[in-house]
Each structure stands twice: as C-alpha cells, then as structure tokens.
Amino acid sequence: MAILILILALVILLAYFLLVNFVGPSMILKPRQKNFLIDGKIISSPSELGLDYENVEIKSFDGVTLKGWLVKAGSNLVGNVIYIHGTYTNKAFGLKRAKFLSEAGYNVLLIDLRYHGESGGSFCTYGYLEKFDVSEWISFLLKRFPDVPIALFGISLGGAVAIQTAGVDNRVCAIIAEGSFANFYDLIFDYHKVKFKFSPKFLINKVLENVERTSGIKVNEISPIEYVKKVSCPVLYIHGKNDETVKPWHSIVLHRYTSNSEILLVEGAGHVNSWEVLGDGYREKIIEFLWKNCNKNKIQ
C-alpha cells in the first residue's frame, strides 16, 4: 500500500512538473491553428471570394517577417481597415468581413499576427509584442495611402491587440473590438475554469511564471484595461451575452474606462458569433460606425 501511495505521489509530482513547465506554457504561447472554411471548403486566397488583393509583407521591429493580404476597396476609397484575427486563427478568418467592408469603400489589410498563418515568430504574446507589429502595419498603410484614415477591427485576441496598439499609437481613427479581453491574467484564469472545471490560482501563477521565463514577456503588462485609458479615438465594443470563452464583463469594463465608446451586447450570441445572430444588422452597425469615424471625405 505504501508503495502504491509513493508511486501515485510521484505520478502527481511528474504531472505537475510537466504541466507548469511545458504543457501549460506551450498551450498559451503556441496555440494550435485552425483552417478557415466556407461551405466546407478551405479558403486560401481572397480571390476565391472574388476580391481584388495583393500579398504584402513587412519586417517587425525585432526582425520577424509579417505577412498579410491587402484587399482593395471595391468602390471609391474612403478609409483603411486593419483586420486583426483571434487566437487559433489567421487572416483568412476576416475574408467575409473584408468583402462587405471593401464594398463599402474600405481597403482592408488582413494580417497574420506573429506565430500565426504565414507570419514568423516564436510565440503568440497576446499584444505584448503584437501592438508594435500592428503599428508597423499602420506605417505601411500611411506610406501607401498618406491621406486615408486607418481603423482597427479586432476579433477576440485581435480586439485586445487593437486596443493596446491604439494605446501606444495615436494614428488610429477608430477601433472595433469584438469579444476582447480586458486583462490577460483574468482571461487565462476564466478559460481554464470553464474548460477544465479546475483553475487554482497557485497553478495558474506557476504556469504564467514559466510563460514569462520562456518568452520574455511580462504578463502583467498585457492589460487592455490600462491601455484603453490612453486611447483617444472612438471605440465600438461588441460582445455576445452568452460568451463563455471571454466573459461579457471584459467588454463592459473596457467600455466603462474608455473616454469615447459605445457597446453592443448581443442577446443569444456566444464568442465572436454576433454576425450570425444579428445578420444584416451586424454589417450595418459596422459600416455606420466606420462611416462616421473613419471616412476621409468627412475628416477632411
């Protein structure tokens, strides 16, 4: 019996060691990505949706290759939108949104965040480094279209990155943040609580300590709630009331601390599926918000 207890204790210790040092940090820093499907077909190019585009590429401040698709406005150009995808996804997940934005007169730059899609990078850092990458993309667009305003449209992680970017770069005319988190630690804690029904703080703290050790990021600095206090442009928050991945309180708190914002809480919607619930109302709200706040004809 004593031997069995000893073996069990050793197994538990080994599992703990692997979880906090390898499995946990890897799940956070290296999220596995999904393919994008429309009607069961993997989409690999905007041209498959009839969109005029070009492949674009830049180098980040630390030498990482970042890639994207620049979808051209289908009518008279009124603005630029940088679409920022969520965790586990890539730029292709923004194609359907790019289609209606292009039709409304916006160039749409769909980017792959570092460690996603075709971009390089060793880790996903949840905005710690990505905010500077997006700032480089802003510079890229301003060189191509010097008099055209730029909005950021972020989904889930992308919303948090958009907020952090605008907190350090005032060249943004508007932000749409759908399903964003307010604080990285709370996001990780809630996520594990929902997924595993077990999320002790001491365990999360050890995992995050090793996330910092492995990647060099500072977890307490991944906090959109702090960056949003420095954001001067208008922000539209969208969040599903039934979101279990990123609880609605994240957007509610962000809205409360944003000087110029509005919030759309969608009844019956979960994580970033408000479009499916609202239908045409979703597109109309996005276009109305951008037309008001990111339109070169009105700004000039």
Rank of each mutant, 00 (worst) to 15 (best):
I58F: 06
Y128I: 03
T245A: 06
I12D: 03
I38D: 07
V266S: 03
E57G: 06
E221V: 00
K195D: 13
G74D: 05
A166Q: 04
G63L: 02
T65D: 14
I38R: 14
I286H: 09
N183A: 05
F22N: 09
V277R: 07
S261P: 00
E209V: 00
S45T: 15
A2T: 15
D169P: 00
E212N: 03
S119G: 15
V108K: 07
S102F: 02
K195E: 14
G159A: 12
L152S: 00
L203A: 15
D190L: 14
L51W: 11
V71C: 04
Y237G: 01
I175D: 03
G270T: 01
N80T: 04
G268M: 04
W291G: 06
A151G: 01
L18T: 04
L187I: 03
K292W: 02
K143F: 07
K41Q: 07
T125H: 09
P31D: 09
N90H: 08
N107Q: 02
I7N: 12
I299K: 06
A9N: 09
K241G: 04
F184S: 06
E262K: 15
N21M: 04
N273G: 00
I175G: 06
E130H: 03
F202W: 13
S102W: 05
P31T: 11
I238G: 01
L203T: 08
E178P: 00
N210S: 08
G105V: 02
F22G: 01
M27Y: 09
S215Y: 04
Q300D: 14
I28K: 08
P200H: 14
G79A: 02
V194S: 10
A151Q: 07
K247D: 09
H255C: 04
H255E: 11
T89G: 04
N107A: 02
K30A: 13
G120T: 11
F181P: 12
T245V: 12
G68N: 06
L49Y: 14
V266R: 14
L8W: 04
I238K: 06
G216I: 15
R283D: 12
E267N: 14
K67C: 12
D133R: 09
F22P: 00
G50E: 11
G167Y: 12
G268I: 09
S102R: 02
N295G: 00
S60I: 01
Y53W: 12
G127N: 10
N90P: 05
L203Y: 12
R213L: 08
K206N: 09
F181E: 09
K143Y: 08
Y237Q: 06
V11N: 11
S232G: 13
D280A: 10
L109N: 12
V172N: 00
K247V: 11
L8T: 13
D280E: 13
A2C: 03
N220R: 15
T125W: 07
G279E: 08
A73E: 05
V253Y: 08
Y282H: 14
I84V: 03
D243L: 04
E130G: 03
